[in-house]
Design a protein around this nucleic acid. Structure first.
Lengths: 135, 135
DNA sequence: GTTGACGTTGACGTAAACGTCAAGTTATCG
DNA sequence: CGATAACTTGACGTTTACGTCAACGTCAAC
């Protein structure tokens, strides 16, 4: 019943990234897996961290920002000034993300319009709904 | 009645970027302003392009991707295969953007929870004053 | 024992997106 | 006219996020 663990290639395959990337995240202080000798061993918590890293990247955070958030979150539980700082960062991020979502909505709308125009130009019927994968 | 035009520093200030960046976008084929002698003169269409570039960047497009979209959009009006290609690119982007929006929603939710925890830890009341924005 | 798969640590290379000079050009103001 | 500000084109530097070797360790299998 030992905790479930993973090695580096398993994680790399699961998340479709390279082992190099994972080691790089460790260099940057984003992961601290156990070692068995010199081999890295990742537990479920490490795996969650990796997921957070990748999601952070997808929404446009730099590795440094991700590290700062991790660090602040870790430190924040017992230090009031840190908590205040953490809240400020979160609020800034929240505003950025809301802007980003607005941008995305605009672009999605435009994409829809452009696709409509294209299909019209191709003589297709805009038959109500355009199935996204019919090519 | 002459068309409204701008110089490079005006645009830089308006969009809070450097002139270097604007020239760089031109190097990359994203802008082609007129010239008065060697000075660049931007019209409203150039300005719109610049806005599109910046919005593209905000949603995570590379300059190359932005250029491809511009090029395809320009060419797409009179070439059916190009139109098909354009549609494919748009659909791929659409899927990416939907994923990105999902990520953002998740993070916004987490941010809300974290802030709640922090404020609780600080003994504050969630007295409503900081509802940064509603979805 | 050695072969091969897998893992490790450096060290160096690379692409994107600019920043930062340097050195010259043009417009304007007094 | 000269000074100054604003603009120009290179050319090289910088940061981020890895990729790409090279050289070595290790462990099970043959």
């Amino acid at each position: 019943m030992g905790e479930q663990v993973f090695n580096i290639t398993e994680l790399a395959q699961e998340f479709d990234i390279t082992t190099r990337a994972i080691r790089f995240y460790e260099d940057q202080g984003l992961l601290e897996p156990e070692r068995a000798g010199q081999r890295r061993i990742y537990n479920r918590r490490d795996r969650v961290r990796l997921m957070l890293i990748l999601r952070g990247k997808r929404i446009g955070l730099s590795l440094q920002e991700i590290r700062e958030l991790f660090a602040l979150y870790d430190a924040a539980h017992d230090d009031a000034p840190q908590l205040q700082e953490f809240i400020r960062i979160l609020e800034r991020k929240e505003l950025q993300l809301l802007t980003q979502m607005e941008d995305i909505k605009v672009v999605l709308t435009e994409i829809g319009q452009l696709r409509g125009q294209c299909e019209k130009a191709l003589g297709k019927r805009a038959n109500g709904h355009n199935q996204v994968k019919e090519l």
